[in-house]
Each structure stands twice: as C-alpha cells, then as structure tokens.
Design a protein around this nucleic acid. Structure first.
Lengths: 212, 212
DNA sequence: GAGCAACTAGGTAGAAATACCTGATTTTAA
DNA sequence: TTAAAATCAGGTATTTCTACCTAGTTGCTC
C-alpha cells in the first residue's frame, strides 16, 4: 500500500446504486487510488466535498435533488483545479461539448468498461485531460449508446422541456421565443427521431436515457 | 447469518465489470441470499453452473464468447427449474416477449434500481414470476405513498398503446371502440396520474416502469 | 334489487398539435 | 468569404386533444 499522499484522491457522485457500488468496489482494489467518498445526489456531494478534498470527481449527470449539470459549476468554482469525469447514460457529441463547456475534464458513457474509467481517472489527474479521440473510440465500440440523431443544443433544450410535460406554448414562454418556433423545432425533432407526435418524442427521449 | 440451505442461491453472468461488481457487492449484503458465483461470459457460466447449482440466475443478454440468448436455452435444458432474471441494456416489448419465450422468468433493464433487482430475485424464487407492475403495487403498500393510480384493465390497455405512440383514433381502431371512449379513459388516467396531457401520461408510465 | 365501478359513447367548445409552406437573421465551418 | 447549419417566426389548413357535460349498459357485490 502506497503512502496516501501519493495516491489520487477520488470521489464518486452517482445515484444509480448498483453502478456506484460497482465503481466503489473496483476502485478500492486500485492501490494508486484513494477513494475518499461516494454519494448518491448533488446536495450530498457538495456537503462532502467541502470537508474531503479530492483530485478527481466522477460525476453522474442525472441525479436527484441536484443534478450534475447544476452542481458541476458550483463545485468547480470552489475547487478550480478539480478534475471532473462526467458520466451519462446518454452519450452524444452535443452533450459532450456542453459538458466540456461546463468545465468537465472528461465525458464517458455510463456503461464504459472499467478499464476506460480507470485510464480516464489517471489521465485527467496526470495530464489534465483524457483524449477525446479515445473516448470517441469508446463511443463507437459501445453500440448500445450509438446514436445518429445529433440534436442541436436548442433541440435538446426543447426535448428536455417536453419531457417535463410542457406544451409548446409553455416552452415558448420559458425560452422567450414564439410558440411557432417551438413547433418548428418539434417537427425537426420528430424527423430526426422518426416519430409522429409529442408522445413519440417523449418516449424516444426517455427510452434513450435523456432525462430520467 | 442464516443457514445456507435456507438462502436463495444466486449466480450472475454479466460482462460489464462495473455492473457485475456492483451487483455482487450489494447482493453480498443480503443475508437471505447466497451469492454462489459470478462470471463475465456465457462459456464460463456453463462451466461454473455445472459444478455449482443455483436457484436464480441473473443473466445479461449481451455477452462475449457466448451471449445470453444462446446459453439460456442450453442452461434451461440442463436445469428446468432454474429461475432466470434476464438483464438487457435494451428494454422493449418485443424483446420482452422474445426473452420470455426463451424461458426466462423475468426481464429487467440494466439500469434498474437495485431494490427492483432484489425484489425480482426473491419473487421469481418464491412465486415463480415477477413483474414491474407488481413491484409498484408492493412498493405502494410498503412505503404508503400517495400514489393511487390503480388503473383498471382497460386503462392499462390504453396506457400501453399510448406508450406506443398511438393517437386516440388509432387506439380506438385497435380496440374496436369509439375514439370518444378512448378520450374518456385518457381523462381518467390523467386524473389518476395528476398529469395534464398525453405526454404527461407517457412520462408517468415510462418513469414508473410500466412499459419500457 | 340497490348500489357501485367499469366500460361505453355522444354533444359542444376551444385549445393544442401537426403538415404543409415561406423566408428572415445569426452562427459555424470549410 | 462563401456555404451550410441553426435559429427564428409567420400563413393556412387540418387533425388531434382537452374540458366539461350527459347517460346507457354490464357485471359484481352486499
């Protein structure tokens, strides 16, 4: 067992119990890593991280109470040098870019191989990044998460609001645009997802793990 | 610790290391379960199960060397009384039917809550079956939630078709009733689920595991 | 057989969504 | 600096959905 000072301090925020437990169990076997804590939601994460500084944070995007997207900027403001590996059930180019803009160091699909996660942790800590090319390869390998829809950022916003039971009018008001524009976006989303109505869009989004 | 004879003997075949490790770690904490072995592919599964009889097998559909679909019939022929809980990243009605035809006892999405998996293991062992609808009923009783959907059989039929992107008219034609009747059922469902439109109904159904 | 829940279905309105268009401005990428 | 993509939004017509009514039939139970 190495000295704790030399080991990479890692924390996990992931609400899915089985995955979190799996990551915990596997990381505990890595002797160059020091697993500091694991939590199941964003609020708990913010509390814990204040008392337990870490080098690398594994962060799930979709969590209860406070999601990853929300707490990522908060935490990064407190600890600008923290490296964050974001996990998401859904993996796409637009989300990748969005997450990196938020300040994440790396973005991986939830069902990545453990070896990839391990590489990512070590790489973001030592080099400050994890090769996007590599994660792209991983994406291609992971047929389960392969997708071709390629939503634009605006479409993703609309998609999210549709999954919150919002009507076009309500979405228009929330985004300060015309309801006709929202309808236009919806039509394009329907084309991309090969669906024919709002329910179809919602079904697609939920089945593909967008906004659980 | 209970007597081993009384505990449900469980085995896991799942190639995704993190998930497998997570399930292993969580099942080991359950004192009425006896985790006999865990493997990462179908060939290993067949070897191990010959020497280590179990009551319930948790089986991933997509595995290297030999996938779940292939080894399920083989194993079931050797052990006709074995209960098999199939996991899959994909969850849909056709796959469900396919898997049940193969002889599986239960079919769950990979990213189910651990509590659901646990319920499934106990239920298939004791009662020989498990359905997500049932788990919801039991949860409702246990947690005393204010959820009182209590759908009628007809409402469940409509709910299912709504989750297949069908319009009221299409549902009416499928069930040989008036589209006005379908609309009436939809209104009742919206009341019960406290939703305000079709998307809301679908979101409710999918989030609560009705028809994934 | 009275009461009840479930299923059926019609009337009328208005709201919302969908299917076609069109074209503008802005952003991004080649 | 073009070309392409994304975003915005209006027109018009049709379909679908939602809301709030009423009300008949069946089947079950007390």
């Amino acid at each position: 067992m190495r000295n704790n000072e030399e080991r990479i301090r890692v924390a996990i925020a992931e609400d899915h119990q089985i995955l979190r437990q799996g990551i915990v169990a596997l990381l505990e076997d890595e002797e160059n890593l020091n697993l500091v804590f694991d939590v199941g939601d964003g609020l708990e994460l913010i509390e814990k991280i204040k008392e337990n500084p870490v080098d690398v944070l594994i962060l799930d995007l979709n969590m209860p109470k406070m999601d990853g997207e929300t707490c990522l900027p908060i935490i990064l403001k407190l600890y600008p040098n923290l490296k964050i590996v974001v996990l998401s059930a859904y993996f796409s180019e637009p989300i990748l870019n969005f997450v990196l803009e938020l300040g994440a160091t790396c973005f991986l699909p939830k069902l990545s191989d453990f070896s990839v996660l391990l590489d990512a942790i070590v790489s973001v800590h030592q080099k400050g990044f994890y090769s996007i090319e590599e994660s792209k390869k991983e994406k291609r390998l992971n047929l389960e998460l392969e997708m071709k829809e390629n939503f634009t950022p605006r479409e993703l916003e609309i998609l999210k609001l549709l999954c919150e039971e919002k009507t076009s009018k309500e979405i228009a008001e929330a985004l300060f645009i015309s309801h006709r524009t929202v309808e236009g976006h919806k039509l394009r989303i329907m084309e991309k997802t090969k669906t024919t109505n709002t329910s179809g869009i919602v079904i697609f989004a939920l089945r593909n793990g967008y906004f659980r």
